[in-house]
Design a protein around this nucleic acid. Structure first.
Length: 195
DNA sequence: CTCCGGATTCGT
DNA sequence: CGAATCCGGAGT
């Protein structure tokens, strides 16, 4: 069966992948696949757009307000999902990066649908809705459950995608941090949330 | 306890 | 451009 073969061929990323600085992780997440099994049906999307949030010194990062009930997952060990509710309406998913205490993460902003995805996937809220990700997924270990990121099999002769770096979206309150080039996406991909 | 505003999306 | 809609975080 096609779906099973794709997932079997994919390789769940190890803890060490996430235990690096968020800029490196952000760039390398592009092209990986996000998988979430909902009612035993695996939903799969290719990550095409992300943003890096560097830590407490980054005024756009939630962790800049210190360790709180909401942000404690960001302060925890790498390879976990940080999922939060935004504007009372939508969920956003991050992967936690770096060692415990560093409080950095990468926000997943857009997916290219691969399997079992209905509706749009361009934008962090729409991505979570299509993947069936909500706050119950917060703090989920990406190494031990049915929500994870995997490396898809390398397509023969595939050329490396060109990665574009731009300022992050929706963080104008963060002063000069809003201008840092911490949004990454695959050049020309039609599933980017915004040009 | 009250109040404010958001790493968004949709419709006008 | 403004509404929707909830809750974490900060202040009283």
């Amino acid at each position: 069966m096609q779906i099973t073969s794709v997932i079997d061929a994919a390789q769940k990323l190890p803890r060490a992948f996430y235990d690096r600085d968020p800029i490196t992780v952000a760039g390398e997440l592009l092209g990986k696949v996000l998988v979430h099994a909902v009612d035993a049906v695996p939903r799969v999307g290719r990550i095409v757009e992300v943003e890096a949030y560097l830590g407490p010194h980054d005024l756009a990062a939630h962790s800049s307000r210190g360790l709180t009930e909401r942000t404690k997952v960001m302060f925890g060990p790498p390879g976990h999902a940080y999922v939060y509710l935004i504007y009372g309406l939508h969920c956003c998913m991050n992967v936690v990066t770096e060692r415990e205490g560093q409080a950095s993460a990468v926000l997943l902003r857009a997916l290219e649908p691969v399997h079992n995805l209905d509706g749009r996937t361009q934008g962090p809220g729409l991505l979570c809705r299509a993947m069936g990700i909500d706050r119950k997924c917060n703090a989920h270990d990406l190494l031990s459950g049915d929500l994870y990121v995997a490396a898809p099999p390398l397509a023969a002769g595939a050329k490396a995608p060109v990665i574009v770096r731009r300022p992050r979206i929706g963080v104008d309150y963060a002063g000069h941090w809003a201008r840092r080039l911490l949004r990454f996406y695959i050049n020309g991909n039609p599933f980017i949330s915004r040009p």
